[in-house]
């Protein structure tokens, strides 16, 4: 195991975050906070409570998840795409690091960034809306699992993409709609029955529901199903990683 190699990739990526702090930390924090201000303080007070939770507080877990997923995806996919794009990838290919070590370095760094971001957003939310966290350990579990899973998913997108368009298309056209329709802003009880059924096919719903449960103890679906769903998705991403390695579908010629 090339521990130094993993560390080198990890540190390099963290340093890149520090350099681009405005874009990778400040900007997502500010844009998420705007939701808290608008829904939490401004209109939130005019919207009914949902299951006994004020609307401003209700949306926090969903928004946090949304930012976490999108940032993990874009961070990790860009991190591996960029060296391919500018050609510095040759060094990694010629280094004594295995594919798995590369994955650990990049995904570890991307997940770390997302978690830092999640913490900052959570603290910011506290300033605007009345929050409570009933099951902090479960909350942390969801945060870590989501950050890791979506960073890995992003990494795979970055390996697969051979142009900028491909890099953007999955996050924008697939994940964003799923996140918005996944119950960030509402409980699915509020939907007509037909759409409730449709929603159950949206994997993001399970994540947001479980995550919200860790805050307020209210959920659209059972929290175990939620945990099972994210575990399943992580398993799928790991399988895809293994498959990519196995079939040699890599960056090499």
């Amino acid at each position: 195991m090339n521990l130094q190699g993993i560390l080198a990739i990890y540190r390099y990526e963290m340093a890149r975050t520090k350099r681009t702090v405005l874009q990778s930390v400040v900007s997502p924090v500010v844009s998420t906070s705007l939701y808290f201000v608008v829904f939490g303080s401004a209109i939130g007070s005019r919207i009914q409570e949902i299951d006994g939770v004020p609307y401003g507080a209700f949306i926090v877990p969903g928004l946090l998840m949304l930012t976490l997923m999108m940032q993990s995806l874009s961070n990790a996919s860009f991190a591996i795409y960029f060296p391919k794009f500018i050609g510095t990838i040759f060094e990694m290919l010629s280094a004594p690091v295995s594919f798995y070590e590369i994955v650990i370095g990049y995904v570890g760094a991307a997940a770390t960034k997302s978690l830092i971001l999640g913490a900052i957003i959570l603290l910011t939310a506290w300033c605007f809306v009345p929050l409570r966290i009933e099951y902090p350990v479960v909350m942390l579990l969801f945060l870590v699992l989501t950050a890791v899973t979506f960073s890995l998913f992003g990494f795979l997108i970055g390996i697969w993409a051979d142009n900028f368009e491909k890099l953007q298309v999955i996050p924008l056209l697939v994940v964003t709609p799923m996140v918005f329709l996944g119950g960030s802003f509402y409980s699915i009880d509020m939907l007509p029955e037909f759409w409730q059924t449709v929603s159950l096919f949206n994997p993001v719903l399970y994540l947001i529901s479980g995550f919200r449960w860790s805050f307020y103890g209210i959920a659209d679906v059972n929290v175990w199903i939620s945990l099972g769903a994210i575990a399943l998705f992580l398993g799928l991403c790991l399988l895809a990683t293994w498959w990519i390695f196995k079939t040699g579908y890599r960056i090499k010629k």
């Binding site: 080198a8 890149r16 510095t88 990694m92």
Partner: peptide
């Protein structure tokens, strides 16, 4: 390996990029 094409990360510093290379190749 010094490849034919110049490929460098423009936003890095020479010192950081050399440290990175050393680590990547498994050296303390």
């Amino acid at each position: 390996l010094v490849p034919q094409e110049l490929a460098t990360d423009s936003f890095e510093t020479p010192l950081a990029t050399c440290r990175y290379s050393r680590g990547l190749f498994g050296r303390k």
